[in-house]
Design a protein around this nucleic acid. Structure first.
Lengths: 211, 211
DNA sequence: CATTTACCTGATCGAGCGATAAGATTCGTT
DNA sequence: AACGAATCTTATCGCTCGATCAGGTAAATG
């Protein structure tokens, strides 16, 4: 029974709740993020979450929907108007965008990793609703690269987790990285260098070079 | 006030509690794993956890100690008696062992990733007690490889998170991998192939080959 | 055999959890 | 200005959490 949003104040509040929920769900996990903490961060009272969303689980789903939607649209925007461009270049752009998005929105892979550790309803829903389309895009990219000899002919499961793990882990674990190495992984130069590394690792540079 | 363990039954119970705690802490996070659930999985009653350990936090620390200790000893055993062997071969063995250990004990990187998302006392303790020594070993390995031209001269923070993320993520996220791709990442052939891939990615094969 | 002490359990505490009910308030509509 | 729906709050429910306590059982010790 999510409310019929029809006034600007309601939309703003919804937005604030979603942002707070993403922050706390991603850092503290589903169980560790209390609805009271989310409400406080959003600047509202706790029962209001149940007015805008049907319950904690549905708030989580709405927040995850919002985050994946942002990833999809940003990727589409990045790749729009590149119809004639070389496929290897497009693949590099896709990988680079994934790394950059993971740096700007570490919540995405924090939540994915959190839920992926344990079988259950939330994982099932997330995989079928959001992860599988992402995965199939990645697999199609792997196949285009393999057809051009730019990728070892390995099962896509290896490449997918290799790529996402290598590209997103630093940002997922940013507080540890900061404390362990003294380096801020969100610094623009670090993000750029990391994206370069991941691109180079995945796509063996042979002769041509782009982006 | 951890008890002075001096009878075999106590040691066995301690072991069962630690195993249950590792399983649930790693899958459900610190907050999500209730002491009652841990006790039930260990086959004991809940107040017994407070007899053997001073509280939830200290149980967590004991479990994490145990896990890192297992990693250290298994790595030492793997590398013992290799004093004269080529350093590149040793590096490959280290990376391979890391991947294989992450497959056999996904709890390690599940817990590391969980705690690394959020600054706090548990992260501080874990980094200074366990992660930093591991990291320094890795950095020393990177430097030996770079000195032989086997590694791009990149800041160790990049390489460390690249390596660990690429090597451990599949196993951390095994339930998702199973559902998403139908592949069981714990199957021996998958583990071996993944280790090969990570080794090849990190250490650019030039001419020689070993292990 | 009696005593001590390590090991373990049942009962229960206060605190925090997610959720709901009832009512106040705000704002677009007429 | 008045009405009604949308928005938000205060108070409170039942439940589970981690922790404590008093007591029971069993094994090693003298």
């Amino acid at each position: 029974m999510s409310a019929v949003v029809s006034r600007p104040a309601g939309l703003e509040t919804r937005r604030a709740i979603l942002d707070a929920a993403l922050d706390l769900f991603s850092k503290r996990s589903f169980d560790g993020a209390s609805t009271r903490a989310i409400a406080e961060l959003a600047g509202v009272t706790q029962p209001l979450l149940n007015y805008h969303f049907a319950g904690k689980e549905e708030l989580w789903r709405a927040a995850v929907d919002d985050l994946f939607e942002r990833f999809r649209t940003s990727m589409q925007r990045r790749l729009s108007g590149l119809r004639g461009v070389d496929e290897v270049t497009i693949a590099k752009l896709m990988v680079r965008h994934f790394v950059e998005f993971s740096a700007a929105n570490p919540q995405l892979y924090r939540i994915i990793m959190q839920e992926s550790k344990r079988a259950g309803g939330r994982l099932d829903w997330m995989v079928e609703t959001h992860v599988r389309p992402m995965y199939e895009n990645a697999v199609a990219m792997f196949e285009r690269l393999a057809a051009r000899g730019k990728l070892a002919p390995v099962a896509p499961a290896h490449l997918y987790y290799l790529l996402t793990g290598a590209g997103a882990s630093v940002f997922v674990m940013a507080p540890e990285c900061q404390r362990l190495t003294g380096v801020d992984p969100f610094a623009p130069e670090f993000v750029a260098a990391h994206a370069d590394l991941v691109v180079d690792l995945l796509i063996r540079a042979t002769t041509e070079e782009s982006a």
